[in-house]
Nucleic acid binder design. Structure first.
Lengths: 327, 327
DNA sequence: GCGATTCACTGATCCGTTTCAGTGAAACGC
DNA sequence: GCGTTTCACTGAAACGGATCAGTGAATCGC
């Protein structure tokens, strides 16, 4: 049944005595009389005709696919985000082509280019390296919606940006209020130099608040973070608090603490960032981003962008502190 | 740059003085001399030529896309599985088109058919309803790899099945050994009647072991499970143990227990199923499936199947009990 | 040294749509 | 009543490759 040759538009044309062009128009309700539309619809249904997406894509230049390039799917919160976006896109009759940059800027670049070559109608990206130069060129020919950070040279991109400034300030302020002065920051940044705006801001903000900040790095996954955390938590200069730049990283710190027999927040306070569903269960105090809102806005923007009905647009997401038991 | 018109095969042909056909062959290393291959490669590189995937797909009938139809991406373990498969497929130069049946058999059917219509080269499915009749028809024309349960009428499908019989027995036996006789089973099954083989087996196995079994249902997500669990955990006939058919469901039970002030395993023992990364952290005793092995086998099978080089094949995955602190 | 094979490559056709430039007829304006 | 629009539809040309049936030359066997 599946392989039995499918009907083509020509057969429908033949059955209705119309030209293929007329059928094509009728099926999309263009330029034709209501009566013809009916006739074509009926014939199509009878023949079990279904437009061939590939042929349609070749002729029209539109595939109905939206590329979703995730920063790192090691990160559980980003997994949730991807799932949400995939579902929302399907509800809008688009397919999401989900790819994982795995925290690697070079891979991000490669995949972004491949996605373009695959002729996706538009791209949603949660950039690993928002400052990379190729974004500008890419955005020239492909509608892009950035999530999290704005893209450099983003004159072509719409954005759902997180107000990380507020998020970071909120978290650090909270730690300070609870009496923690000596705090380690665990970020998923690649290099050990604080090159991302967020990192720079963490340090500046920490200084403003009179905090003693040490920035550490790890991968985006739970176990990588656990390894890094175990190292510096075992040291003599154990920080009073660890501010993790994602909940996944915080889970890694929990793991490390468990292995070292450290209690949270007794021996060390932990602050997360994202608010993954599991964090409530673990009692992780964290900075919440409205994931449903992000999904909704990103999908709305990308659909509009792929339809060409979008003025460049920036949506800002505000954070909220979820006070639980880890600080 | 991105939108600048791309070179076509005909331009490469012109540049090399060959026919388009020869270029097409050369690019794939077919029927041509090594010297010509070099010449074509060079010219292609110079012109920035890159084969148009859509055109290629239309002409060849192959898209390079593998459909991945997940049972429910509410389930965190299935999220991990999907991420793993997506990554492994990309490494093999295939794109994964990931869709979520959301535990809904009707949706599963619809999406499976849509995936076929999208002309994916093959399908990986973790079936919600493995007994559904349409699988047989679908498999007729589309290579399918089933994960978890075998598909009905699966003469066309390869399978990576879980030995749930052993998994369930292992779990129940362990509960029994720990002295729990009165156990509730929380499954993500739709109907409240035990219609899935696994459920039937749970009951049979429970009886054999002298266990008192009550099967309950919930969705596949953490919060749905939490709601159901809170209900029956608050009742007078609170079971001694809850056996959850996925770790996500178990997380829901943790949540419910927390809300009710019940301690685990003091007031109620919890047994999971899957072994999601977070379970180690939570100390959830659970049944482990080798996720990397499953990914590897499924991808191997589906790639072979889409290349047409596969005899029907069944791989069986064996479970392992992870003893932690929840029972 | 001659027929049979193999090899490298060509021309044409096909895949199944969309879309552009018409075309004839009816409706319209005045 | 005549020129102009509008309408419903047609024919043919894309879209950009893959593939099939050759074709001419070189190679082979003996």
């Amino acid at each position: 049944m599946a392989q039995r040759k499918r009907a083509t538009i020509r057969e429908v044309a033949q059955a209705t005595g119309l030209s293929p062009a007329a059928v094509s128009y009728a099926l999309r309700g263009l330029h034709v009389s209501a009566e013809t539309v009916q006739r074509v619809r009926r014939a199509a249904a009878e023949l079990g005709y279904e437009a061939h997406p590939i042929a349609r894509a070749l002729a029209s230049g539109r595939t109905g696919m939206i590329g979703l390039l995730c920063g790192s799917l090691e990160d559980l919160w980003q997994q949730s985000l991807a799932v949400g976006i995939g579902r929302a896109l399907r509800d809008k009759d688009r397919y999401a082509l989900i790819l994982d940059a795995a925290g690697n800027p070079a891979r991000e670049r490669t995949l972004a280019l491949q996605l373009r070559d695959q002729r996706v109608d538009a791209l949603i990206v949660q950039p690993v390296d928002p400052a990379a130069l190729f974004w500008g060129d890419l955005a020239e020919g492909l509608p892009i919606v950035a999530i999290g950070d704005a893209l450099s040279g983003g004159r072509g991109a719409a954005e759902v940006v997180f107000d990380n400034r507020s998020g970071v300030t909120m978290a650090l302020q909270y730690l300070r209020d609870r009496g923690h002065r000596h705090v380690a920051v665990l970020t998923p940044t690649r290099s050990s130099t604080p090159d991302r705006p967020a990192d720079v801001h963490v340090i500046a903000e920490g200084r403003r608040l009179g905090l003693e900040i040490a920035v550490r790095t790890s991968g985006q996954g739970v176990s990588e973070a656990a390894q890094v955390a175990e190292e510096f938590l075992a040291g003599a200069d154990r920080p009073a608090a660890v501010f993790c730049f994602s909940d996944s990283i915080a889970y890694g710190v929990y793991k490390a603490a468990a292995r070292l027999g450290l209690s949270i927040p007794g021996d060390v306070a932990v602050m997360g960032y994202d608010d993954h569903p599991m964090s409530e269960l673990l009692g992780l105090t964290t900075v919440n981003w409205d994931i449903d809102g992000i999904v909704r806005e990103a999908v709305r923007l990308v659909v509009a962008a792929s339809d060409g009905t979008l003025r460049r647009r920036r949506i800002v997401q505000a954070p909220a502190l979820r006070e639980r038991r880890s600080v």
